[in-house]
Each structure stands twice: as structure tokens, then as C-alpha cells.
């Protein structure tokens, strides 16, 4: 065991992790999938969505922000945590206005795929039904806030590109993704080629005029559940 590695245990299996990694990153490297929505590889973790909640030495914590240390005992794939995550995902559905059959992201959407993976059959919570604003001003990118889960991936991606096109505004149920332009996205310096324009896990922030070019049945999560890419990975080391 080299100096900067530590050992952690996830669901009874010992895993070697690099010091400085988060639990989620270490699990990814070991081919163990921890569900997540606001985490996107290469961006600073946001810790917003709580879908990545695990139990660390018996206490709930978000794995995308929790650093590894020697001997951590982690629960991930348990009935209890799956139920909790499913509830979180259900809340995201109830908060927004999601009509999957009419949404172009269907089949490529991480939120939808997560709902399937976690076995969410229907939304049992009351829908907020709060209409949210659509921003169609940009020639190549749109924001359909009905489908926003406030994960902040767009904001972090933009910041990483040195642009700061997106940011949060308001609190509680009034919280929304805002843009750095008084009259909408067209006034920002967002370009279609930016990573921020492709960072969104849902059908909210999308490139225009794509729609249904990729046939249903051939979309990312049509055949394999979300997370299978990680689970198929050979453990490192």
C-alpha cells in the first residue's frame, strides 16, 4: 500500500482509494456506482441534489463531497438508501413540470434514467405545478426551466470555462437558474460549443434544433440503465 492511498469499505467490500478523492470518485474508480445527479466528472462537486447520499460510519453524508479517509465504512446499495434517493428524485419531479413523453431529452435524461434505476413508478407527492419561464432568446441554446432540477452543473461548467453565464437566484421554491443577461441567454457570451451548454442532466438546458434526431430506442439510457458504464469498469489497481 503506497503512502497516499487509503482503504475504505463500501457495502462490505474493501476498496483502495486515493487520498484527496471523494467517496464518489473512489467508488467510480473501483467500478461501484453511487447514484448522483448534480455531480459531473471534471467539475467541482456541488453537493446540491443529495441523490448521492450514503451512510458513512452510520451517518448520512453526500458522497460527492465527502473526502475518503482510512477505514471509512460506507453503506451504498441498501434498501434504505435507495428509498431515500427515490424520494429525492420524486421531489425533483414534483417540483418541476416534467412531461417525459413530449420531452426531447427522454431517453437521454439523467433524471428520468435515475427514476427508472431507483424503481420510481409514479410520483406520489403532490405536484407544485408552478409554471416556470422558458428562455428561447439565444440562437442556439434554450432553457426550459420547467425541467430544471437546480443541480448547478451549468453554472459550475461555465465558471470552469471562465464565463459565469449561469447562477442561482431566489430561495426555496422561488430558486431558479438565472443567466448573466437582462433579456435572457442571448445577451450572455454562451456559445453552443461551450461545455456549459452540454452539462445539463435533463431536458432543461439544451442545444436548439436537435429534438428527436436520435431515434427513440437508440438513446443513451434506452438499452442500458444509468450507471452501467461505471459498473462495467474494471477496478483500478
Amino acid at each position: 500500500m503506497s503512502k497516499n492511498t487509503v482503504n475504505i469499505i463500501i457495502d462490505g467490500v474493501e476498496i483502495e482509494a486515493q487520498e484527496g478523492q471523494t467517496i464518489l470518485q473512489a467508488a467510480d474508480d473501483a467500478g461501484v456506482y453511487i447514484p448522483r445527479l448534480c455531480y459531473l466528472k471534471g467539475l467541482i462537486p456541488g453537493g446540491h441534489c443529495r441523490v448521492c447520499t450514503v451512510k458513512v460510519n452510520g451517518r448520512p453524508a453526500s458522497s460527492c463531497t465527502f473526502p475518503v479517509s482510512e477505514g471509512l465504512v460506507i453503506e451504498n446499495d441498501t434498501e434504505e438508501l435507495t428509498t431515500l434517493r427515490r424520494t429525492v428524485v420524486e421531489m425533483l419531479f414534483a417540483e418541476g413540470n416534467h412531461v417525459c413523453p413530449a420531452c426531447e431529452a427522454s431517453g437521454n435524461c439523467e433524471l428520468q434514467a435515475m427514476a427508472y434505476r431507483l424503481g420510481m413508478l409514479a410520483v406520489t407527492l403532490p405536484f407544485l405545478r408552478k409554471p416556470r419561464e422558458l428562455d428561447a432568446t439565444h440562437p442556439d441554446v434554450f432553457i426550459d426551466r420547467d425541467r430544471c432540477i437546480l443541480c448547478g452543473r451549468c453554472a459550475r461548467a461555465s465558471e470552469a470555462e471562465g464565463k459565469r453565464v449561469f447562477g442561482f437566484e431566489g430561495r426555496g421554491i422561488n430558486k431558479r437558474i438565472a443567466v448573466d443577461g437582462e433579456h435572457g441567454l442571448k445577451e450572455t457570451d454562451l456559445k453552443a460549443a461551450d461545455r456549459a451548454a452540454r452539462a445539463c442532466p435533463t431536458g432543461c438546458l439544451r442545444l436548439k434544433r436537435i429534438g428527436w434526431k436520435v431515434p427513440v430506442g437508440q438513446r443513451q439510457y434506452d438499452t442500458t440503465p444509468i450507471g452501467s458504464d461505471i459498473e462495467q469498469k474494471q477496478p483500478v489497481g
Binding site: 412531461v99 413523453p101 413530449a102 426531447e104 422558458l134 428561447a136 434554450f142 436548439k208 434544433r209 436537435i210 429534438g211 428527436w212
Partner: peptide, 14 residues
């Protein structure tokens, strides 16, 4: 109304 034109073929059937 207000939706994108490329959504029409899918939305209208709903």
C-alpha cells in the same frame, strides 16, 4: 404556442 417548432410533431399527438 410558445413551444419550439421541432417539438410540434411530438407534442401535437399528445
Amino acid at each position: 404556442q410558445g413551444r419550439f417548432y421541432w417539438e410540434a410533431p411530438v407534442m401535437v399527438q399528445r
